[in-house]
Design a protein around this nucleic acid. Sequence first.
DNA 1: CCCCGCCCTG
DNA 2: CAGGGCGGGG
Length: 147
Amino acid sequence: MFYYSRYPSSTMLKIYFPDVKFNRCITSQLIKWFSNFREFYYIQMEKFARAALADGVTSAEELTVTRDSELFRALNVHYNKANDFQVPGRFLEVAELTLREFFCAVAAAKDVDPSWKKAIYKVICKLDSEVPESFRSPSCLWEITHL
DNA sequence: CCCCGCCCTG
DNA sequence: CAGGGCGGGG
C-alpha cells in the first residue's frame, strides 16, 4: 500500500483493513508503521542523492529511478521482500522526484538548515495515488491468490 | 485534550 | 519496527 500512498489518513487505513477492529492503539500503530516506512524511504533518498553528488552528478535530470536501480532494489527488499506483486509505475516517478528533490536541496546546500527536509516532505505528501480496490482486506486478497 | 507526523533511540 | 517525547493543528 505504501507504493501507492505514503501518507494514508487514518480513515483510509480503516477502509483498507475492514477485517480489523480498530481502537486507539491499533490505529496509532498503523500510523506509526507508515511513519517508519517514510523514514526508511527518505533516508534512502538522501543517501543516494548524496552519493550521486559525490560521484560528480551535476544535474538532477541525470538521476532516474527504474526497476533496475539500486535505490529501487533497496526499497523493494524492505517493503516487498517476497517480490510478490508488481510495483506501480507511478511509484517510480514519485521516487525519482523525491531523489531529485533531495539532490537539488543538498546541491544548493539547503541542508545547513536543520529543518531543510520539511520543504521536501510538503512536496511528496501531495503525490499520493489512489490505492487499488483489490487491496481491501488482506485476508480476502490472500484467499484469492492462494485458492 | 486528541490526533498526527517527525525525531531519536534501541 | 516500537517507544517516548515534541511540536503543530483541530
